[in-house]
Design a protein around this nucleic acid. Structure first.
Length: 428
DNA sequence: AGTGATGATTGCAC
DNA sequence: GTGCAATCATCACT
């Protein structure tokens, strides 16, 4: 049938008098070879002279062609032929499975909070990183900065994506219109238009993939810049260091805070428990390595805690004056916690004025300090007999360089208290 | 740029 | 799992 039709139109009475189709054939075409050659020659001639025709002429012929009663049949036949040839071969590769790389990129962008629903400008990754690297004020600044940058990336990504989608839609509509228009004169089936749309979408999605890829790269760079704790190490705040030092020097005989104490310190210092552990690990080793260097610091903190202790003792004594006054180590009152303990190896009387002024706390307090001193002395940790400027003696380090009381540190919830020692825990 | 301080990590021992 | 010791990487100061 195809051959018949094709033969009718091309070899038979086709395109007589311009491009207009002839009336339908009445039978089979003539088998005359010369006649066929003549016809083909005519067609070629018409094609070659088509540019000489005026626009009106062309439109008129086009209209005549469209109105020809054989046109629909011929159109579908040509479409079928086209379908079976390589002209539409590109459509064969449609319906391929989703690109794994694209899926990876999508997942990553989703996990980073770039694509998907807005999570308050932040992301799960940022939150995780925040938890991992602590949550000090410095870090929070950093994370807000990180979030701001991420939001920026997110905005750029969405703007670009929107642009691409818009361009894709516009282009698709344009091509579809064009093809529909052309389908009136060319054998273009709706299926083929669909395929063309698919091709366009694939092209645009490959552009989108590039966008996603560069967005992922940007996020990765941002993460490594902002959230790598080691790269972006920040010193703890002065206050945090002070709190940690106070605890360390007031528990020098056993500077191993319990889990509870670590948590308390972490909370106070706005750092993580593991950071507290790191700090104590570093402090212990560095103190041990260079005791001399830390002596001044130790004296300072010891004086500080002594003053606090004296104040606390004074307050306690005043509270208990009407009752039976007790020494602080009686531990009857839970109203205060003496922040220094048997760890105090300080000679208060030899402290200089900058660190400590006995007169500042008054005679009453001074007597209590003396009491305290006595109590501390009883623990064996206090010594008046230190030579030179050695206000502070690391008695608590044994010959092996370890802490004497450092037995099963992880299970120790408070410093080992000798008889008569005052419970202290600055973390409380 | 050099240097010491400091927080984090790693490998090992218990 | 915890702590020690060594080390790394960065900060902060000169």
């Amino acid at each position: 049938m195809l051959q018949t039709l094709a033969g009718v139109n091309l070899a038979g009475h086709s395109v007589q008098g311009g491009m207009a189709l002839p009336p339908p054939p009445h039978g089979h075409e003539g088998a005359d070879g010369d006649g066929r050659k003549q016809d083909i020659g005519d067609i070629l001639h018409q094609i070659m002279t088509i540019t000489d025709q005026s626009l009106d002429e062309a439109q008129a012929k086009k209209h005549a062609l469209n109105c020809h009663r054989m046109k629909p049949a011929l159109f579908s036949v040509l479409c079928e032929i086209k379908e079976k040839t390589g002209l539409s071969i590109r459509g064969a590769q449609e319906e391929d499975p989703p690109d794994p790389q694209l899926m990876r990129l999508d997942n990553m962008l989703l996990a980073e909070g770039v694509s998907g629903p807005e999570k308050g400008g932040g992301s799960a990754a940022a939150a995780a990183a925040a938890a991992a690297s602590g949550s000090s004020s410095d870090n929070s600044i950093e994370h807000s900065d990180y979030r701001a940058k991420l939001t920026q990336i997110r905005q750029i990504y969405h703007t670009e994506l929107e642009k691409y989608e818009q361009a894709c839609n516009e282009f698709t509509t344009h091509v579809m219109n064009l093809l529909r228009e052309q389908s009136r004169t060319r054998p273009i089936s709706p299926k083929e238009i669909e395929r063309m749309v698919g091709i366009i979408h694939r092209k645009f999605s490959s552009i989108q993939m590039q966008l996603k890829q560069s967005t992922c790269e940007a996020v990765m760079i941002l993460r490594s810049r902002f959230l790598d704790a080691r790269r972006k190490r920040r010193n703890f705040s002065k206050q945090a260091t002070e709190i940690l030092n106070e605890y360390f020097y007031s528990h020098l005989s056993n500077p191993y805070p319990s889990e509870e104490a670590k948590e308390e310190l972490a909370k106070k210092c706005s750092i993580t428990v593991s950071q507290v552990s790191n700090w104590f690990g570093n402090k212990r080793i560095r103190y041990k390595k260079n005791i001399g260097k830390f002596q001044e610091e130790a004296n300072l903190y010891a004086a500080k805690t002594a003053v606090t202790a004296a104040h606390a003792v004074a307050a306690a004594v005043q509270n208990n004056q009407t009752n039976s006054p007790t020494t602080p180590n009686s531990g009857s009152s839970g109203s205060f916690n003496l922040p220094n303990s048997g760890d105090m190896f300080m000679n208060m009387q030899s402290l200089n004025g900058d660190s400590y002024q006995g007169s500042q706390v008054g005679a009453n307090v001074q007597s209590q300090v003396d009491t305290l001193r006595h109590v501390i002395n009883q623990t064996g940790g206090y010594s008046d007999g230190l030579g030179g400027n050695s206000l502070y003696s690391p008695h608590n380090l044994n010959a092996n360089g370890g802490w004497q009381d450092a037995t099963t540190p992880s299970s120790v919830t408070s410093p080992t208290e000798g008889p008569g020692s005052v419970h202290s825990d600055t973390s409380n």
